[in-house]
Design a protein around this nucleic acid. Structure first.
Lengths: 199, 199
DNA sequence: GTCTATAAGCTGATAGAC
DNA sequence: GTCTATCAGCTTATAGAC
């Protein structure tokens, strides 16, 4: 196993780790440098400032957070519920690998909503259109697409936001909470079917 | 209209405003002092340190966040769904008045999970017990209380966490998003009925 | 490219006059 | 109790040797 990462890559990985857990205000350039195994001055040599480095990390993580998988709701011949099933599965799996991603994105966006203008996102309008089409074809029950998506995506994300609070309130240990997250997929789809299925 | 607040009260109000929107790391003692209309030195005269002041604010906000209204799930003769309805209504109303409360609590708890031990919370165990009783009596369908509460509470909280991101993704303006929040209660209860109602 | 040394500014906290 | 002045330490960023 060789050390094949370039200095630039090592910095970005370290910066992601620190910014994700500490946020912009809580992060320290020294901490990032230590984690990358290099000197503090190198950070500025490669990325000029803390702001620039943060922006780079944020853009990357934002792309990861906004589920591009949702684009697959359009094509192929699966039923809408089956497409949702595939989407929820993939999104939950991504979140399990990046448990601190949601809080990082939502915190950053709340403290700086203007950042949103930099992201041209068409996935939202597309999903709304697909749902309206399905409704007009009578394939799913008539529901407000915004409310539905807010709930569906929220059901996936919320367990990763509320982890410490829920562990405290319900007196759960690590394993018990991991089990809840592991079974989350079933409950999300139970919601989707209950709300969308035509009788 | 007289200026009847004591200096201590003015500081606490100012500190709440600043800590809630900026978080601990992002908050500045100078900012709190300005907002309270007093001097920076006064903050330390009254509360010794930033840590102490933050801890005071956090304890207060934590009590607000953990829905003590849930305790009303025990008493009186309303059906479980009617009690839930009352709970969801009250909790959503509180959140509308304190829209930045969820992100503040969840951010703080994620970056310092140990804080949870200071809060003796029995509301979680109580809710689980009440649901188990209702299930065994055949009043509601058998569901995992943890999954159900995670969804129910998440449905209330999530719109306040994801506001800027969702406004961006679905291209919504302030009014449109406010309308979604205003109608949220209906969709939360639609979920509860769909999952719990015995057929 | 990588390092050490250091500048420049900010931040929490204190001292001391009134 | 409230203020001004100031300290000590930290944090980002740069200068300059190698």
């Amino acid at each position: 196993m060789e050390e094949s990462l370039t200095t630039e890559q090592k910095i970005i990985e370290a910066a992601e780790g620190v910014f994700l857990t500490e946020g912009y205000a809580g992060a320290r350039m020294q901490q990032i440098a230590d984690r990358a195994g290099i000197n503090k001055a190198m950070l500025h040599y490669y990325f000029r400032s803390k702001d620039k480095l943060f922006e780079l990390v944020f853009r990357h993580k934002m792309k990861q957070f906004v589920p591009q998988i949702a684009l697959t709701l359009q094509d192929d011949q699966l039923s809408f519920l089956d497409k949702l099933d595939r989407f929820v599965m993939a999104y939950l799996e991504m979140l399990r690998k990046n448990p601190s991603l949601p809080l990082f994105i939502l915190s950053t966006m709340n403290r700086n909503p203007d950042l949103m203008v930099h992201f041209k996102i068409e996935v939202g309008q597309m999903v709304v259109q697909v749902m309206k089409d399905e409704i007009s074809k009578g394939k799913i029950r008539p529901v407000d697409p915004h409310q539905f998506m807010l709930t569906l995506v929220g059901m996936c994300i919320f367990p990763f936001l509320a982890r410490p609070v829920f562990m405290g309130i319900f007196n759960l240990n690590q394993e018990a909470y991991a089990a809840i997250v592991a079974e989350r997929h079933l409950h999300v789809m139970q919601y989707a079917r209950a709300i969308l299925s035509v009788s």
